[in-house]
């Protein structure tokens, strides 16, 4: 696999973090080089807007590719992936937000592509963006309840007059049948194993007797 991008100039982590920490010390940008995959730069949630502005003006990150979120048991992490087409660079910024009240400043005044991306983040995970020009759902309907990509999301039973998961189409009998078959097979295997052990026991006794005879033989 070709890694010419790596040889051309892997993202200059130390340059970025030093510059960010110098200009915006409350960002506390840190990174930890990873062996597998990409390395993100972690920053504080309150300083997302000044850090993005600094990276755009200082290092020329004129394209915001994507804003994603990920739900963990104790926090929600939002990632911003920025790109620079003229210098062929890319950087991932990550912030941690609390699960009860995930609020962060919007960057849609820096890059216009943030508009739709932040709306999707709100729709899927419930992250609120301050000063967003159009804060409403984008993919799910406007009267949808819940945030689907959270790990504790339960599909709602009905939407208006339609049943979302009708019993007759959920194929439950086939699924339960498959599970029952697996349980039966596991039981049978366990039975056969105990039978085989029982058969093997007399052999073991015979071996012990032979070993004793050998020992006696050696001794004698």
């Amino acid at each position: 696999m070709n890694d010419s991008f790596v040889t051309n100039g892997w993202p200059m982590f130390s340059t970025y973090t030093d510059s960010i920490n110098k200009m915006i010390p409350e960002a506390k940008a840190i990174y930890e080089l990873r062996e597998v995959g990409d390395t993100p730069i972690d920053i504080e949630a309150e300083s997302v807007h000044p850090v993005c502005q600094h990276l755009k003006t200082q290092f020329g990150f004129h394209v915001l590719e994507v804003i994603t979120g990920c739900d963990y048991p104790d926090r929600i992490e939002v990632s911003y992936i920025l790109a620079n087409f003229t210098d062929n660079q890319e950087v991932i910024l990550k912030t941690k937000l609390s699960r009860e009240n995930p609020v962060v400043d919007s960057v849609s005044d820096i890059w216009s592509s943030a508009n739709f991306q932040e709306r999707e983040c709100f729709d899927m995970l419930g992250v609120h963006f301050n000063n967003h020009p159009d804060p409403r759902r984008i993919l799910c309907p406007d009267d949808w309840e819940g945030f689907p990509l959270r790990k504790d999301y339960k599909t709602q039973e009905r939407y208006r007059h339609m049943i979302v998961n009708p019993e007759s189409k959920m194929n439950i009998e086939d699924r339960e049948f498959a599970n029952k078959q697996k349980a039966l097979e596991a039981k049978q295997k366990a039975l056969e194993k105990t039978k085989a052990d029982a058969m093997a026991e007399p052999k073991k006794v015979a071996e012990i007797v032979e070993d004793k005879k050998d020992d006696q033989g050696e001794k004698s």
């Binding site: 990873r34 597998v36 995959g37 590719e65 994507v66 994603t68 992936i81 890319e90 991932i92």
Partner: peptide
Amino acid sequence: LPAGEIYSKSECPRGELGYH
């Protein structure tokens, strides 16, 4: 897969496609 993350891009007929 080992624990970690990756963002990989490729050129589709319609533009750049990225998987995070």
